[in-house]
Amino acid sequence: MKNQIKRAIFSKGMLIVLFISIVLNALFIKYIIGRYNELNATMIKNDGGIRPLDRSPFNCFILINPTVYGTYYHYIIPLLCALPFAASYSIERKKGYVKNEFIRQGKINYIVKKIVATFISGGIAGSMPAVISFLWIFTYRPYIAPTPASGEVAGSNTTIGMLYFTHPFVYYGLFFISMFAICGCFALIALLISDFTVNVLTVLISPMFIDVVLSAVLSNDKTKYLMSSMLELRREHNYVATFFVVISCISFISIVMYIHNKNRDCY
């Protein structure tokens, strides 16, 4: 287990994710600081000073600020989740390495380890740009607690949504945990696909493809239960729904992989 997780976290895919995170966030920070300075100059000219609450870092990181970089990030999240480790199973099957592992540690044991490692690596990879952005913005903007007066809200009408105003760090802590779980599920979707194909490209883009197709096909009411929609902070999403979606996803993928591999001879 330890070996699989180590391979997943210290993979080349994770390095690529780290690189994408840094580039995306650097562009985002450059844009947001430029816009802030512009706004500040206008406000000083017109009103005598910028509204101090606009500087709150809590409403100004990549996932919730409506910038083009946030939109890019939102679309590539499923791809980032699949990058580090999701395709490893198909690669191992293609090379025949998987047979050695099956003999050494047993088929089911190996698949369980694969599922856990993929989930963890996917969670880290998907939420990495958001976490980096959240930490980075504090080096540019001072700590100003969010208040309703600034018109900035997140997850309103929910009990957890209230934490945004009272305990913002706890709120974001919970949010990142739920994000980790959702991103882990995206990676598991790719792992499931890798059980049926050895084409790496298909495996990597499959979560993104499924997400885009489902978003296009489902109605607005149902779309909010999609995993990608749950990542939208300003949506009035429900953490209980997130929990059920994540658990259902993990259970479904585990069961399908178990059934598919139980009596399988050809890899």
């Binding site: 000073g49 509204r51 101090p52 809200v153 949504g161």
Partner: peptide, 30 residues
Amino acid sequence: HYPEKMWNDLLGVPTYIVYEYNKEFGGIPR
């Protein structure tokens, strides 16, 4: 934009007004 609880607080007695005093712009209360 506002959570239900916040409206309930506002509708209750302890509604209050806050003046924000910002030294950066020469003591502008908002």
